[in-house]
Design a protein around this nucleic acid. Structure first.
Length: 745
DNA sequence: TTAGGGTTAG
């Protein structure tokens, strides 16, 4: 054992040698110098293996308790705690043991205890440590203790406690101000953070930056940019982190001009282009649709092995519909992560390529990626638009088994899936079980009820939403007005259409006008509907003229129908639906000549009729039928069932609506054509293959024809079967001879 | 032995 000063160890090996000396040479341990040496040994050991740290703590256990060593040991625990092998209880056990030995903890001990507690969600423990600290010392006496105390409460999301800890400090230093402001901002208490910022004696780059980032995270990009401007006007220079936050706000606002000027600022100031800044820049350019610059930054900096910048540009391409470019980048990636897959899958889903999305999902396993709630939300969205109920249910089971953490997005996507599959009861159960509901959740519920023809229930949910103090937004009002129009609730619709402006300052856009015009048209107030078309501040679009056209058909208003059709044919000359609607109107009113003119016009313009189909899922397999389809392997049984249907329908006085068929064939053949409609084939197949207690669930790409609608009502009664048909724009729930749409669709 | 802010997917 050398007598002179022993050099502080620099390597694990030197530290181990020192440990050996310290533990074998007895008396030296009691000299303060040994404590310093031990301390530097721990510094060497900390970033190395868990075994070394355990050894160091083992040595602490055998040393006589001292304030100094407690601090060092707690620091060791804290450093270890950030890795997976740290024992979370150790610091608190150490603290208790030393206190029992009569040792008074000092500021450093409390500092590290608070730091250790930040990662443990244990509010009571924190309060007890806080109280112990106050009994021993004043946090203000050592500013860093006050800082770590605030930090601890912030990390645990305890805003009130963080604020109290701050208020307790008698002499508040600049860091304490910054910490409480950034902490409140991080917890989403933006109003409080903003107020404190205005009261702070010094506002530095960090407090401004945290507020900017928090506004951006809360989707309040305008306010984030506002903060940035105030910060500049106070003469505070932004740094890299500030710029990242503002770039993200620019991406949200699609403010390319500001984004580009920030890029210039980065170059001018020679800011460090680290990965985070590169990601933020690429994201800004890509979200603004400036792929020339996005690609430039990406090619210069982002093509590294790590996926973050790839993710930013891939998501940008997906969001702008350039799925193929995104996919080609995706295929070039060496390392993908969950975000890459989720972005790509979302891209595919939004562009309607559901199969590709599901293939990617299958691929995730090969990359050893665990599915998370984002992924499940993507898949549920796909199930919802496909109407894939069994697959959606499988995902629900996956959630119930807690294989993925459920959050508010997941709950909303799940209830939306059930709604879009026509399962109002299951959607309602999901809704009722959700602990937290935001405006999206309520809107999904209201719009789901609306499309399923339960307008009154939708409005009841709207009242309840407001009772729960959730503010409706523009989309909520679309759902509310849809509920009114699908259930013909005219006076309610009028009320809400006016109310949204007065109560919430939401100005109606084309979608709201569309719902209102649809509602007026359906209720037979075609003049009023046309008044609104003529007086609204926006040019009417195809959806609006299509509503007028359908209302004209129901209310037999030929002249107006012609006018609406003319507008539609100008706006969407290739859309077959318009021709078909107008054609049917002429047929209904027996204007054969006009009808054949429409037919000729279609031929002339080479407009092709979209092939109608109906799909039904049996035992996880989707069966798709087109009109007069003979391709199904069980076609003989299906035909036999169709004959039975025809026979039983006629026995209760039903006569097929053959007037809709204009082809010059005999009545028998017309009946056969109607019987071969895809929805009837799908229902016949459902009746022969599904258990009698299961509802028959059909998904159709076009509107249900009138003959099928009447026939299905009767089938539901005769077979005592619930039949659900999702058509192009709504749901029909057939039960006991009635339909939820009240024959209005 | 002591301190604060951040990006990409629904």
């Amino acid at each position: 054992m050398p007598r002179g000063p022993w050099p502080a160890p620099r390597t694990v090996r030197q530290a181990a040698e020192l440990h050996a000396l310290l533990t074998t040479s007895g008396g030296i341990l009691y000299r303060p110098y040994a404590h310093h040496l031990l301390n530097s040994a721990v510094n060497c050991l900390l970033p190395s293996e868990p075994l070394h740290l355990r050894y160091a703590l083992h040595v602490f256990d055998r040393l006589p308790a001292s304030t100094f060593l407690l601090g060092t040991a707690l620091r060791a625990c804290f450093r270890a705690g950030s890795s997976s092998w740290g024992d979370p209880d150790r610091p608190f056990l150490l603290f208790r043991r030393t206190r029992r030995a009569g040792v008074r903890p000092d500021a450093f001990a409390f500092h590290f205890l608070f730091k250790c507690s930040s990662s443990r969600p244990h509010a009571l423990l924190c309060t007890m440590l806080h109280a112990a600290c106050l009994r021993t010392m004043l946090p203000s006496a050592a500013p860093f203790v006050a800082h770590s105390l605030i930090h601890m409460y912030v990390e645990l999301g305890l805003a009130g406690d963080a604020r109290r800890a701050f208020d307790e400090i008698t002499v508040k230093d600049a860091v304490a101000w910054t910490m409480v402001i950034s902490g409140l901002a991080k917890m989403g208490m933006l109003g409080d953070a903003q107020l404190l910022l205005s009261q702070a004696p010094v506002r530095d780059v960090i407090s401004w930056t945290s507020l900017i980032a928090a506004y951006t995270r809360a989707n309040r990009a305008n306010e984030a940019v506002g903060c940035f401007k105030s910060m500049l006007s106070e003469g505070i220079a932004p740094d890299e982190v500030t710029v990242i936050g503002v770039l993200s706000a620019c991406a949200q606002l699609k403010d390319l001009e500001l984004g580009h000027s920030l890029h210039l600022l980065i170059k001018e100031k020679g800011m460090l282009m680290d990965e985070n800044l590169v990601v933020a820049l690429i994201n800004m350019y890509a979200k603004c649709g400036d792929f020339v610059h996005a690609q430039q930054v990406f090619d210069a900096m982002g093509r590294g092995p790590r996926p973050h910048s790839w993710n930013a540009i891939i998501d940008g391409y997906c969001k702008h519909g350039h799925i193929d470019v995104a996919r080609s980048l995706f295929d070039q990636m060496e390392v993908c992560d969950l975000i890459t897959f989720n972005s790509m899958m979302t891209g595919y889903i939004h562009s309607g390529q559901l199969r590709e999305a599901l293939l990617l999902f299958m691929n995730m396993r090969r990359h050893d990626l665990r599915v998370d709630s984002f992924t499940v939300v993507c898949l549920l969205t796909a199930c919802a638009s496909l109407g894939a109920l069994p697959q959606g249910r499988a995902l629900h089971a996956f959630i119930e088994q807690r294989l993925v953490e459920a959050d508010i997005y997941l709950g909303t996507a799940l209830l939306d899936m059930y709604m879009k599959c026509g399962r109002v009861d299951e959607a309602t159960i999901v809704f009722q079980r959700m602990g937290k509901r935001d405006v999206h959740t309520w809107t999904a519920m209201i719009s789901g009820l609306a499309f399923n023809g339960m307008g009154k229930a939708a409005l009841e949910h709207f009242y309840q939403m407001r009772r729960d103090a959730v503010q409706p937004n523009s989309v909520t009002y679309i759902a509310v007005l849809t509920a009114c129009s699908h259930s013909c609730l005219l006076s309610e619709g009028r009320l809400y259409f006016d109310e949204m402006r007065i109560l919430y300052n939401i100005h109606p856009h084309i979608g709201h006008y569309g719902c209102m015009i649809d509602l007026l048209g359906r209720s037979g107030h075609l003049d009023e509907a046309m008044d609104l078309v003529n007086t609204m501040p926006i040019q009417p679009n195809a959806v609006i003229w299509a509503s007028i056209l359908s209302a004209c058909r129901v209310h037999k208003h030929i002249d107006l129908a012609q006018c609406a059709a003319e507008h539609l044919l100008k706006l969407e000359p290739d859309e077959d639906g318009v021709y078909v609607q107008l054609y049917n109107i002429y047929i209904d009113s027996r204007q054969w000549e006009n009808a054949s003119k429409i037919r000729m016009l279609m031929e002339e313009r080479q407009v092709k009729k979209t092939a109608g189909y109906s799909a039904i899922t049996v035992a996880g397999q989707v069966h798709k039928f087109v009109v007069s389809d003979k391709s199904h392997p069980r076609i003989l049984e299906i035909i036999a069932m169709l004959e039975e249907i025809s026979h039983r329908l006629k026995s209760v006085g039903y006569s097929p609506l053959t007037s809709q068929i204009t082809v010059d064939v005999d009545e028998e053949e017309k009946e056969q054509t109607l019987l071969g409609h895809s929805e009837k084939l799908a229902i016949a197949f459902g009746l022969i293959s599904l258990a009698p207690n299961l509802p028959v669930h059909i998904i159709k790409n076009l509107r249900v024809c009138e003959d099928c609608h009447s026939a299905i009502k009767l089938i539901s009664r005769l077979w005592n079967r619930e039949i659900i048909v999702r058509d192009r724009s709504r749901f029909h729930h057939f039960r006991e001879g009635k339909c939820s749409c009240d024959d209005f669709w």
